[in-house]
């Protein structure tokens, strides 16, 4: 009897977590899948089975195509830029720089403490076409006035700018931790060989921070596909849906148009897409980089 109870202990301890995970992570996915097969919106307040109609509609919807494009452009531009800036800053900060090092580190990292929504507000001011700092300083470089958030072509880059500013400090810190794990004997050996800054960077630093790069990359993918707060605060998806992104699109369908069926179909496509991307990245990486979990 006692033995049997003992054997149950692990499961008992896991109950709270598993119930919550089930209720708010796994059940929601299944539920979205189910609801996505129904017409359930303001015109059809009771769910009516509709097969693949929601998916079929989305696949030929030009707005959805634009939203996908915006999201992919945002991801494809912000991730490399943010990671490169983070790595460069981290490599430079890893040198002996005295007390100024703390100052630089605080200055680069503090945006992590600023809520995305507040960060959006800061950039709405900075990017204001007439009174903002950005246009003013660009003016010195001979750049003509840009209407940023009101311009079809500049609104998305404006949001990407805010995003890089907000995120690179966090990745920089993770890189710094990775750099500090590199044994200094390797650098000493490189010094004896007469390797300069660039050689050490290329043949010691970069290969040895590869596991950190993988980690940062995966975190960046997960977080950048979810961009929402900046869009909500800075542009509400405009002008002309040019900054509308996946999560904002889901939000619109559910909470502005009251279309639960369509919002669920989008949720399913989003979750499935994200998982496929992450699995592909892991696959690709596993062959090249050896890292410990």
């Amino acid at each position: 009897m006692r033995r049997n109870l003992r054997a149950l202990t692990p499961y008992v301890y896991l109950v709270p977590s598993l119930v919550l995970l089930g209720a708010f992570t796994y059940y929601p996915i299944l539920r979205s899948l189910y609801v996505s097969f129904f017409d359930w919106n303001l015109f059809s307040p009771r769910p009516v089975y509709a097969g693949l109609a929601n998916y079929r509609y989305l696949l030929q919807d030009p707005t959805f195509h634009l939203v996908l494009r915006n999201t992919l452009v945002y991801v494809a531009v912000t991730i490399p830029v943010t990671m490169a800036l983070a790595l460069i800053t981290a490599v430079l900060l890893n040198e002996r720089l005295g007390w100024l090092r703390d100052v630089y580190r605080v200055a680069a990292f503090y945006p992590t403490m600023v809520p995305m929504a507040a960060a959006g507000m800061l950039w709405v001011l900075l990017l204001n076409p007439s009174i903002g700092l950005v246009n003013h300083y660009l003016g010195y470089l001979g750049v003509r006035r840009i209407d940023w958030l009101y311009d079809m072509n500049w609104a998305l880059p404006a949001i990407m700018l805010a995003s890089v500013w907000k995120n690179y400090g966090y990745f920089m810190l993770i890189y710094l931790a990775g750099l500090q794990n590199i044994p200094s004997s390797l650098y000493e050996a490189a010094d004896i060989e007469g390797a300069g800054f660039w050689h050490k960077l290329r043949y010691v630093t970069l290969p040895l921070v590869a596991p950190t790069t993988v980690f940062v990359f995966v975190v960046a993918i997960i977080s950048s596909f979810q961009v929402f707060d900046l869009v909500y605060v800075m542009t509400q998806g405009g002008p002309g849906d040019r900054t509308n992104v996946l999560v904002y699109f889901i939000y619109q369908y559910a909470f502005r148009f009251g279309d639960w069926g369509m919002a669920s179909a989008l949720t399913v496509l989003f979750v499935a897409g994200l998982l496929v991307v992450i699995l592909l990245v892991m696959r690709m990486v596993e062959r090249r980089v050896h890292y410990e979990v």
Binding site: I250, W260, V271, L274
Partner: peptide
């Protein structure tokens, strides 16, 4: 594995069904 997969499934992805719950 169920815990690890949750790390990759951000809550923002499932706001709609969670709202209904």
């Amino acid at each position: 594995g169920l815990f690890l997969i949750q790390m990759m499934l951000p809550v923002h992805a499932v706001i709609v069904p969670n709202y209904l719950t």
